[in-house]
């Protein structure tokens, strides 16, 4: 659906005005209720657009999942598909996770100064 970008900017300006500049009053409460209802309605219709659980022909059921299930034992020698994904197919991503742990604990120790 084509939407003029100016409409979106205008809506954002109205929301920002209501939330940040309008003084506390009955009108503000009504406007906040209307805006939150609209946001909630948008979220609900987005969820309603999602494919049904377990439906075929969705991104969750494409070739990648079956490739992992069928090829894991032959390609990695592991029986646990998840372990094969996180430490073989996506091992570089797990290196990043380990680095995140390292940085987090280094920051916590340097901030709290225990031991």
């Amino acid at each position: 659906m084509e939407v003029n970008p100016l409409i979106g900017v205008g809506i954002l300006l109205v929301i920002a005005y209501v939330f940040f500049y309008l003084p506390q009053s009955q009108i503000r409460q009504i406007l906040v209720f209307i805006i939150l209802s609209m946001i909630g309605y948008a979220l609900v219709i987005t969820v309603a657009e999602m494919p049904a659980f377990g439906a075929l022909n969705t991104p969750a059921n494409n070739l990648v999942a079956s490739r992992y299930i069928e090829g894991t034992v032959g390609e990695t020698g592991a029986l646990n598909v998840i372990a094969a994904i996180i430490t073989d197919y996506r091992a570089f991503d797990t290196l990043g996770e380990a680095t995140v742990l390292f940085v987090a604990i280094a920051a916590a120790i340097s901030t709290l100064k225990t031991h």
């Binding site: 020698g77 430490t87 073989d88 091992a91």
Partner: peptide, 30 residues
């Protein structure tokens, strides 16, 4: 003893996660 580096990487991750959780707990509990 199979699956190549998966077995070796799991040992490193295990030691790291265990030490991170314990250190974080004792850092915050003092």
């Amino acid at each position: 003893l199979s699956s190549g580096i998966i077995f070796l990487l799991a040992m490193g991750i295990g030691a790291k996660v265990a030490s991170t959780m314990v250190t974080l707990f004792y850092s915050l509990s003092g």
